[in-house]
């Protein structure tokens, strides 16, 4: 564990708390992509199967369970609980059908694992989750773009998620310098870089709006 990874994890936790606060305070899920949440749940469930096979630390297991539980709760709120359910507008969240994200990632993961000779289902699903995580934020960014004017807490939510990914890149740099037995995984680096790059545009407008103290509005 290093400071960048810990700060990244905390940023991830803060983003989830901000999202919960955002849902509760506005009593609606307008501007929030249910698809992104569902993709994240698929990512967590497929990646954290090692909860049953490998114990790393209490911290590690706790966080995994917390991510799965909180994301499940958010999805349940938007799908089944009032007033979120009736206010949720699926037509605003139409970008990227889940199967068009899942299928290519599954194919790519299968291919990558075949090449590497990792044939256990847990390895293949782990690799799949690495690819899928890079795409998971896309529907949310698309929803932001549709409404253009981004509500404050929603903006913070995406900011903290992006910060988490940025800090993970610093964590990899740190680990490759200071951990003697650290093994590079280029698939993780590339999808991590792609994922972070997706946030860059949003970050720019977020920082500018904070600097000038105005509302966060995205260009068309």
């Amino acid at each position: 564990m290093n400071i960048f990874r810990f700060a990244g994890d905390m940023s991830h936790v803060v983003s989830i708390l901000v999202l919960l606060l955002r849902l509760r305070s506005s009593k609606s899920a307008v501007g929030i992509s249910l698809k992104t949440q569902e993709l994240f749940l698929i990512v967590f469930v497929t990646r954290y199967l090692d909860l049953f096979t490998t114990f790393y630390s209490l911290y590690n297991s706790f966080m995994k369970v917390a991510y799965i539980a909180s994301t499940t709760y958010i999805i349940w709120m938007i799908r089944f609980q009032e007033p979120y359910k009736s206010k949720y507008d699926a037509s605003q969240d139409s970008f990227l059908h889940i199967k068009f994200a899942v299928a290519p990632c599954a194919g790519l993961a299968l291919f990558a694992c075949l090449v590497k000779g990792e044939l256990s289902p847990i390895d293949i699903l782990w690799t799949f989750s690495i690819f899928l995580e890079a795409l998971a934020i896309v529907p949310q960014l698309f929803v932001l773009q549709r409404y253009r004017e981004v509500e404050n807490l929603t903006g913070h939510y995406v900011f903290f998620l992006g910060a988490y990914r940025g800090l993970y890149i610093l964590n990899w740099v740190y680990r490759s310098y200071y951990e003697q037995f650290y093994r590079h995984n280029w698939l993780v680096y590339v999808s991590g870089a792609v994922q972070t790059a997706l946030y860059v545009d949003f970050f720019y407008y977020y920082v500018v709006s904070k600097y000038y103290g105005g509302k966060l509005t995205l260009p068309t």
């Binding site: 590690n60 990792e118 782990w126 993970y168």
Partner: peptide
Amino acid sequence: KVTEEMKDEL
């Protein structure tokens, strides 16, 4: 073991 790379991350 090759498969353990980075798998301690969240």
